[in-house]
Amino acid sequence: MKVVIADDEAMIRAGIRAILDNDGGIEVVAEAGDGAAAVESVRRHRPAVVLLDIRMPTMDGLTAAAEIRRVAPATGVLVLTTFGEDDYIVRAIAAGAAGFLLKSSDPRELTTAIRAVAGGAAYLSPRVAHRVITDLAGPRLGSGAAARGRVQALTDREREVLILVGKGLSNAEIGRRLFLVEGTVKAYVSSLLSRLGVRNRVQAAILAYEAGLL
């Protein structure tokens, strides 16, 4: 599993690499010290996941996340930062990040988050997940009535898949739960994201919560 690390502090990059090098299933293929270099590294290596700090020179991590989602949509974006303010969380999700992890998290959580994002699932650090769903979803990202209206356009099967996406399941886990092959689940997820007008699974999960499905 190829991973790119982007952080403007060399010591932080070295620490992250040390953690990931101890995992035989993860290969760090590049490091970047700013957002622009991160985008170029992703363009060159096409990793499964890119770890992005938020505050970086040349191009900040949130801008880089949006650009990476444009040039390499198959690469999962995991925002890794020391900043847990609400505004950063919302902006990271809006930029297309599939995960948000604080640097103060347990190192084991880092590899868990990488695998979740690489597998097509969304990942929010437990320290911020509750705040995103309960505090930010309604007032910051939409309304319940509007969400219910958008969800009504889905087929019954798409709605089932959306509920499981909202619970944080990967495509493989959803397939096992619904007795579908993973490729079929992927097609359902792609379809429901398009029909709901959201950019990623995190936004879909929030919409499912707003619509009362979770």
Score class of each variant (00 low, 15 high):
A10V: 13
M11V: 15
R13I: 03
A14K: 14
A18F: 02
A18G: 13
A18C: 06
I26P: 05
I26K: 10
E27R: 14
V28N: 09
A30W: 07
A30N: 10
E31M: 11
A32M: 12
A38C: 09
E40W: 04
S41L: 04
R44P: 02
R44L: 13
R46Y: 07
A48M: 07
V50P: 03
R55G: 00
M56E: 03
T58I: 14
M59Y: 08
D60W: 03
D60I: 05
G61V: 02
I68A: 08
I68Y: 10
R70G: 00
V71A: 00
A72H: 10
A72K: 08
V77M: 11
V79G: 08
L80Y: 11
T82W: 00
D86T: 12
D87N: 07
Y88G: 07
I89S: 07
I89G: 04
V90M: 05
R91M: 05
I93N: 10
A95Y: 01
G96V: 03
A98T: 02
F100E: 03
S104E: 12
S104H: 01
S105Y: 08
D106W: 03
R108T: 00
T112D: 06
I114M: 02
I114Y: 04
I114P: 02
A116G: 04
V117R: 09
V117P: 09
A118Q: 03
A118F: 05
G119W: 01
G119A: 13
G120Y: 05
S125N: 14
A129N: 10
I133K: 06
T134Q: 04
P139M: 02
R140N: 02
L141V: 00
S143W: 02
G149I: 03
V151M: 09
Q152F: 03
E160I: 02
I163D: 01
G166N: 06
G166I: 06
A172S: 06
G175A: 08
L180K: 09
V181R: 13
E182S: 10
A187P: 04
V189P: 13
S191I: 07
S191N: 13
G197C: 10
G197P: 11
V198E: 05
R199V: 11
Q203L: 13
I206L: 15
Y209V: 05
G212H: 11
